[in-house]
Every structure is written in C-alpha cells, then in structure tokens.
Design a binder for these strands. Sequence first.
DNA 1: CGTGTCATGTAAGGAGTTACATGATTTG
DNA 2: CAAATCATGTAACTCCTTACATGACACG
Lengths: 187, 187
Amino acid sequence: MNSQDVILGILMKRSLTGYEIKGLFEDVFSFFYSSSFGTIYPVLNRMEKENLIKKEVVIQSGKPNKNIFTITQYGKERFNNYLNSPLEADEGTKSDFLMRLYFGHFVSYDLVVGWLKQTEEHIQFKLDALRERYSINKDTMQPPHIICMEIGIKGYSAKLEAIREGLVRLERLVQEEREQNDGSTFE
Amino acid sequence: MNSQDVILGILMKRSLTGYEIKGLFEDVFSFFYSSSFGTIYPVLNRMEKENLIKKEVVIQSGKPNKNIFTITQYGKERFNNYLNSPLEADEGTKSDFLMRLYFGHFVSYDLVVGWLKQTEEHIQFKLDALRERYSINKDTMQPPHIICMEIGIKGYSAKLEAIREGLVRLERLVQEEREQNDGSTFE
DNA sequence: CGTGTCATGTAAGGAGTTACATGATTTG
DNA sequence: CAAATCATGTAACTCCTTACATGACACG
C-alpha cells in the first residue's frame, strides 16, 4: 500500500482535486493513513503520465487552476490488482508514545503522566470523531467498511482504558513520592 | 523518535553489538518498533563518530569481529534530551489491512474474509508473545513499562475481538450469497 | 547436506516530510 | 486585521528497506 493505491481507491468513488484528496486524508482516512501535499501533487502528476487517471483543468481567477482527476479504466484495473495483491502485515507501527513508556523509568513520573494525559486526550479526540462518523453513516455503510470502523473504535477504546488505568496507578505513585519528599515542607 | 533514539535507550541498560540490537528489535521491541541491518550498522557507525557511543572490537575467527557498543556520557545526555523533547503524536499508523477493509466493497467477501483471518492469526501471535513476556517479567518491570505492556495487550485483544465479530458477520453473508447463487447446483 | 545462527557491511532505490514560493478571498 | 481556506507546485532532505557480498560453524 502506498499513496498511489489509496488515491486510486478514493477516485473510484468520485473525481477530485489534489487539495480535496488531502482533505480526505485529514478526515476519513486519518485513522489509518496520512499524506502531505509534497507527496500528493507529484504522485497525481506521475499517475496522469502513466494513464491511471486523467486531468480536467478548471480555470479559476485569484487561485491556481483546479486540477480535477478522474480514474481511468486502466487505473481501475490497477486498483483491483492492488486489492488482489498479498496483504501487507502492518508491522511498521512505530510508536513514540509506547517507546517512551518502555523507557519511562529513566524519567520522573510527572513526565510520564504528561505523556499519558496528552495521548489520552489525543485518542479520545480521534475516538469521538470516529464514533460520530460511524453513527452518521452506518446505515449506508457496506459490511467491510463497518468492520473497519469497529476495529478502530474498539482499538481506541481499549487503549484509552489502559491509559486511564495507568494514570490512576501512576498518580498514586506520584502522590506517595510527594509525601516522602515533601514530608518536612509545607505549602 | 528515530533509530538513534531507540538504540541509545537500548544501550542504557547494557552494551551490545549491532546484531544483538537487531535481535531485540525482532523480539521485545517488535510491537512498537522495527529496523533492518541496513539502518542499524550505518547508524551505529555514525553514532560512534559523533561520540554518542564507543566501540570495543572483539576479535573472532570464522566470523566478522564483534563490535560491542557502549553508551557514552554524551550519549546518555542525548537520550535524556530525547525523552524530554515533545512527544510525537504517532498518527502515522498506516494500515494496509484497514485500508483494504475500507475499500472492501470492491472485492468478494471471500477475499475480505481472507484478510480478516490472516490478520486475526497475526495479531493472535503477537498477543501471545506479549502476554508471555509480560507474565515472565512482570515482577521486575517498572510501572511505566507495565503500562506499555497493558496498552499493547488490551489494544490487540480489542482488535482481535472486533475482527472475530466481523468474521462472524461476514461469513453469514457469504453463506447467504452461496445459497442464492448455488441454489440450482449441487456438490 | 540444507537451514539457521552468528556477524558486519555497502549500494541503490523508494517513499515520504518539511519548508518554501505565490496569492486572492472569506471569516471572525 | 489576522487567520483560515482555497489551490498548486518544487527542492532539499531524511530515513528506511531490499538486495547483495562474505563466510564459518552447528544442528538435525
């Protein structure tokens, strides 16, 4: 899976500009994909040269002309090829957050608590967004799409739960530390 | 977070060779990090030049000499700098599996079921490995480390659950499809 | 006698990011 | 009046992967 595959998939539904595709990456696709303009525009132009998509230019004033891209028959075939290629195990999951927790004993609990709270907030935000989209669209969603959403929602929920339990445990320890260190001071 | 940060963290505990570091990446770190020899060896050599680590050569016969790397004081400082730098939100989670599910309505249910089963197996394997390591080491593990493990275990468990529910739902649909299509045939 | 483990390294290439460049129009 | 939105694009760079090169020894 690379940007090209995803873009082909997106264009299966309807024709879009690079700017709109980026919008989808920030929105619907943000929980399993992301990409920057620096990738999208060059990839779209390369895809046009390879006849996977075709460009329609809409002249505008005040802003650059709009390039609306439509998938070609060849593009559809290639997207189908991708879907029929072997599934890539998504090992790659590199997580700065988990890495830091793994090495958390090298820093103060306060710092670790900070990481946990920040991540809690971040995941809660993503979860809310996902749940909202799910509740709005679930009537029109196809079964595999629903499974995709459920995996996301359950995965986030479980992580959140674990983070919160961790926070409770850690905050108890921070408290104990404070009581020991600050036994003689007052404030 | 990059390979250098992780290697520094690993070397905080004890001195190791590149080969051994790779072993850890395949093992303990595999659920939130991965890296290849093609990254590790050049990075280690660069780190030595930058005085983050120092090399001790152990002469061997029959195989290349062993380069055992030890973190320097400067390396420890740099690792600490990393831990005190802002947490990077690990958005990047690009998942081929979820991507395919999202576009699953373009292919047969059989294919989707294949993806689900393959991923189910894969996650189950990872989960088992994580649980085992957890049960063996939990007495000697520091609190943040425990939280790290719990997040992994709960995350995997939740995903597995959602995948299994999805499989049940899909297999019912596949069955219905078969009954409609094969109504006239026998076998 | 093949496969796995030990052990290091390089070269070529892929895929992506960030930062820059441009600039009107809308919204708070 | 500042910030966001619309809209495209390039250049430099980072980081990583794959494949290659070498080769002994142990295990079954």
